[in-house]
């Protein structure tokens, strides 16, 4: 479904992503793990069209998307739930969700989809008229994921959904990710919480200073010595 080849991304003179290749197949959960500053967010932003690559290609079902503006990429079904949530604090939960559906052409189905999203995140339904900025961190993460779902993604890019959440909430978030995937959404998951991410991922890649250093199934990487040492605390 999504294929990244020879991708390089620069910030001015600094090369943050130094030629990476990876692939996400239909229906998979693929994890991209790595330390701070490895280039995970840069990769996600480039796939979403917020950054332009200096080399390489990104294709969705064979179609080159790396030269498209960000809003066109969303229309194609590549939808990102960004790091740090980036919800619209001054707008209500309902408004945030309808912004999530902004790019959709099938406007009539948006309302019924909002109900479906509320089934997945009941807490948001109770608060639908509330300003998003008043939500707690965990609720904001749920809103960010719900908002991304409203776009009806083919593939959802999730950048550190567990950041700053309590262990219990992290579990819940990962459970929801699996649920979303089961409903037919392909997932590319960026995480620092390698253990949890590898636990639910079909396959995973390890990103180190802008390069892919290791790849395999989630289970393989969970049992790999170098991953254990670097990301799982021995």
């Amino acid at each position: 479904m999504l294929k990244v080849e020879g991708l390089k991304v620069n910030y001015g003179m600094i090369e943050a992503v130094k030629g990476i290749d990876f692939e996400v197949h239909d229906g998979e959960i693929v994890a991209l793990i790595g330390a701070n500053g490895a280039g995970k967010t840069t990769t996600m932003h480039t796939i979403s069209g917020l950054l332009k690559p200096s080399a390489g290609s990104i294709t969705l079902d064979g179609k080159e998307v790396s030269r498209l503006p960000a809003h066109k990429i969303v229309e194609l079904g590549i939808v990102q739930c960004p790091e740090g949530r980036r919800i619209f604090a001054q707008q209500t939960i309902e408004e945030n969700l309808s912004l999530g559906a902004y790019a959709r052409k099938d406007r009539k189905e948006i309302e019924s989809d909002m109900e479906k999203v509320f089934d997945l995140f009941p807490i948001l339904k109770e608060r639908r008229k509330q300003l998003a900025g008043t939500l707690s961190g965990g609720e904001q993460q749920m809103l960010a994921m719900a908002r991304a779902l409203m776009a009806k993604p083919k593939i959802m890019l999730l950048d550190e959904p567990s950041m700053g959440l309590s262990p219990l909430l992290v579990k819940e978030i990962f459970y929801i990710i699996k649920d979303i995937n089961r409903q037919g959404v392909t997932v590319l998951l960026v995480e620092q919480n390698a253990k949890m991410a590898l636990g639910i991922a079909n396959r995973a890649y390890v990103l180190e200073s802008g390069k892919i250093s290791l790849s395999g199934t989630g289970e393989e990487l969970l049992n790999s010595d170098s991953v254990k040492k670097a990301y799982l605390g021995g």
Partner: peptide, 18 residues
């Protein structure tokens, strides 16, 4: 709503397809 979204966070607005 799209305008208000842009005023809050342009990149996030782009990710909405705006």
């Amino acid at each position: 709503k799209a305008m208000r979204a842009c005023s809050e966070d342009k990149d996030a607005a782009r990710l909405m397809g705006i």
